[in-house]
Amino acid sequence: MDSREHVPAMLEPFGRVLRKHPRVNEQLNRAMAPFENSAKVLLFSCNMCGQCLLHENGYTCPMNCPKQLRNGPCGGVRMNGHCEVRPEMECVWLKAERRSRYLPGRYLFVRLHAPLDWRRKGSSAILNAVAGFPGDVKANEKE
């Protein structure tokens, strides 16, 4: 799927500008990232990967997993549902699975996710989604 699937169509011209002018993208990113990220850190203990999956995972950040898994829980979840690495913490994916049941993004929970693009770490996930990730084949095709 396209990284811009959830981006409203009216933002498409804006996305085109961002893709065409990487410098604008960078400047905007610099202005926006601290606000977006600090809000997400406070609300969802976000890890600022720049490729947000919060809406798919019941607003639970999968990057809090000590193994940083993005495709579901590993085989080491304890019988009480806690993490094998940090026994005091509930498994991120158990929490995500439970919370996503009450949220509209539930159907997205079983999707396959490609590995993280580490170049985007720390940048604004919203701008990235609007612009399409670099190397996003489909985004480039539409140009």
Binding site: D2, Q51, K138
Partner: peptide, 13 residues
């Protein structure tokens, strides 16, 4: 493969 079809972060099921 997923990685060849699209380098975007996700693919629909």
């Amino acid at each position: 493969p997923v990685s060849a079809a699209s380098v975007s972060p996700v693919r629909g099921t």
